[in-house]
Design a protein around this nucleic acid. Structure first.
Length: 405
DNA sequence: AATTCGATCAACCGCTCACCG
DNA sequence: TCGGTGAGCGGTTGATCGAAT
């Protein structure tokens, strides 16, 4: 019960609100490399001005590589309805039966349309709790100014058309947050989920589901780019489980601290090491490229994983040709999602505006100034090799240079 | 074209649970 | 056994987008 503990974000100085692409990058890079054994310590070690809770949420609900994006398929909706009938608002449990979906997402979907469908009368009735007064007056109005600078929403909002498509790629035998389920799930609810003639999607082989999906040469439009990002660097990344211990105290991940002063970026190789997974110099042995998925889905490094390569990369076989073909795509996708996308002509900085499902990314701030001003953006756009980040005249390479591909 | 309104979803908050010393 | 700490869950909030007016 309340134990009166202060909110973890109570500390002043911590960022709140929307995540910036840079923050996403840092988080993904860090987790990919070191896993997330300790959420509380993670933000600090990763150089993020966020609380661990926030990081965790962001990772689970958005950055995780095995997330499905897009509308729920009819089967998924069916499943949610069915499970909700059995479990009530046990979103995490429901989510555990829907690979690639998060409790938050399911909760949102339920509250937005499934609930209406089930009881068109606007019915609450079931499982009282639910409610979540959507009836709240939406008196708010944009308040235009917005709390923070308008950042390109990393998520292309899926078109409102409901369901039926998109079950496509991603997703993995998730179990993603199967997390705590282990302990809790066991006892509670005498429900026999196994008898739920479990969802079609569960038929998907959790193992073959992993990262391969993410580098599908023809991924669903606007898929989780960040996920792709995570997976992309994986080929050269050492495998490890998410349980891989965080860098020991005295052994903060190289470059991470530097990240804190990113504006004057000097992290080049280090961050790239992290991202690359390869840098394993930073390896600290247990590096964890696959940690990204390891934690959640069948880690690519496990059963289905190819013989480990010398550097522990879980790359190769299943990241083979398709991956090669996919690289271009996910790179572009990633950049697009992060608002960094667009080949840049060094000469005149002609920028190709990011496009979303509906054309130009709405409200996307002119990326040019951002790129010039924001070394991080520049950094990710240009890659470490392009070094000169401070000056507007830095050399910019094609997007395929991202991550040194 | 401008404004309003409803829908959607990411993120936060508060609480509970589980683990560990 | 107890208390402290961290992780996870569920409910709620608020920003944003698109359709309607």
């Amino acid at each position: 019960m309340g134990k009166g503990r202060a909110p973890c974000c109570a500390k002043v100085g911590l960022n709140k609100g929307s995540w910036t692409p840079e923050e996403d990058m840092r988080l993904v890079a860090y987790i990919q490399k070191y896993g997330h054994a300790n959420w509380r310590a993670l933000p600090k070690q990763a150089g993020l001005l966020r609380c661990g809770k926030s990081c965790r949420l962001r990772w689970i609900n958005y950055l995780r590589p095995d997330l499905k994006r897009g509308n729920f398929s009819a089967e998924e909706e069916e499943t949610v309805i069915k499970l909700h009938g059995l479990l009530g608002n046990k979103w995490s449990k429901i989510a555990s039966c829907l690979p690639g979906r998060t409790d938050n997402e399911i909760k949102n979907v339920w509250n937005t349309h499934l609930k209406k469908r089930v009881s068109p009368s606007g019915g609450e009735e079931e499982h009282g709790a639910a409610g979540s007064n959507k009836n709240k007056k939406k008196k708010k109005k944009k308040a235009a100014g917005g709390a923070e600078e308008p950042l390109p929403s990393p998520t292309p909002s899926p078109s409102p058309s409901s369901s039926t498509t998109t079950t496509a790629n991603c997703s993995s035998g998730d179990s993603g947050e199967q997390q705590s389920n282990t302990s809790k799930e066991a006892d509670d609810d005498e429900l026999d989920l196994e008898n739920l003639e479990m969802m079609p999607m569960l038929d998907d082989d959790p193992i073959t589901f992993g990262f391969d999906m993410l580098v599908d040469p023809v991924p669903a439009p606007y898929g989780p780019a960040v996920s792709a990002f995570a997976s992309a660097s994986r080929p050269t990344s050492p495998c490890a489980s998410s349980t891989s211990p965080p860098p020991p105290p005295g052994c903060a991940p190289p470059g991470v601290d530097d990240l804190l002063v990113l504006p004057e970026i000097d992290i080049d190789q280090e961050l790239w090491s992290i991202i690359d997974g390869n840098g394993d110099g930073g390896g600290d042995g247990g590096g964890s490229a696959c940690a990204v998925s390891a934690e959640t889905s069948a880690p690519c490094c496990q059963s289905n994983a190819p013989e480990p390569t010398t550097n522990g990369a879980c790359a190769t076989s299943h990241h083979g040709a398709a991956e090669e073909e996919g690289k271009e795509w996910w790179l572009e996708d990633l950049e697009r999602e992060l608002g960094l996308w667009g080949p840049v002509d060094v000469e005149d900085y002609h920028y190709q505006y990011p496009t979303g499902p509906h054309g130009l990314v709405a409200n996307h701030p002119d990326p040019l100034p951002a790129m010039v001003d924001d070394p991080v953006s520049c950094y990710f756009q240009a890659g470490p090799a392009s070094a000169v980040l401070q000056e507007p005249g830095y050399s910019v390479t094609s997007s395929s240079n991202l991550m040194g591909l």
